[in-house]
Amino acid sequence: MSYHKEFIKNGERLNGRKLSELRVPEVDIGQNGELTISAGDTKIFIKISSEISKPYDDKPNEGILIINNDIDNDILSRIVEKSIRKSNALDLESLVISTGKICWIIKIDLNILNFDGNLIDYCILGIMINLLLYKLPNYDIVDNSIKLYNLDEKAPISLSILHIPICFTISFYNPSTIEMNLKSDEVFEISLFDADKQEEDLRDSYMVITLNSNKEIIQLSKLGGIPINSVEVLKLCEICYDKAKEMTQWIKDVVKKEEEKTSDRVKMLAAVDQR
């Protein structure tokens, strides 16, 4: 037995957080779609870029969204894919400029700079904040060709985000032996939110839930590990929903603050122009 397990059994964690307490992420927003999100020692750099291209032949009225990550992790990329692309968080149809001919490609590059647990949650959180802040240059179609405008010529366009998926990873710990857990209905697994690196190493199983503030579950995956009571899973979904609402509000606050900052800058530039 380790210090971690004994602490968790007693409802405490080594890092001083409560079992269901999340870390407060820090977001550092750069220019041109660059963003760094960090929580604890986990640090992810996310870059969004866009270019003009041709839509896929079988989907003529959809734009293209590509999510790359620099570590070769199937679970991470699959869950991010499910949560963001398949849930239609980004309205791909709004990326089409001319059906079947021209559309925007949005590329999201994830660079994992440091790992201290819970990559999936913070990747999705960072991507969503970045997508909400990202601006495409404004354009016009002149004589069958596209004319792009600079930021100061014409106000850029925001992406159309249909909903904000929020992801939670819940780690499970078995307080007794595996046999007890299989046979008995009285042994309950201890669930823990936002595990750090050491807690992730020790966990017996985990579940990833993505949901949004409309109480829609986008994906739920639990890949192996100890069995979990279904009532317990429903309870956890309920807790996640409450947390998702808070998180959505937090994201909106971050985005609003940043947009105020940029609009201040635009105003200042305009004032300089007038002089």
């Binding site: 210090y3 004994e6 007693n10």
Partner: peptide, 17 residues
């Protein structure tokens, strides 16, 4: 686990932190 040792463990973790 000895009941007294939980307190010692908390001190150990506090010292580590």
């Amino acid at each position: 686990l000895l009941p007294s040792s939980l307190n010692d463990m908390k001190y150990t973790v506090a010292a580590a932190n």
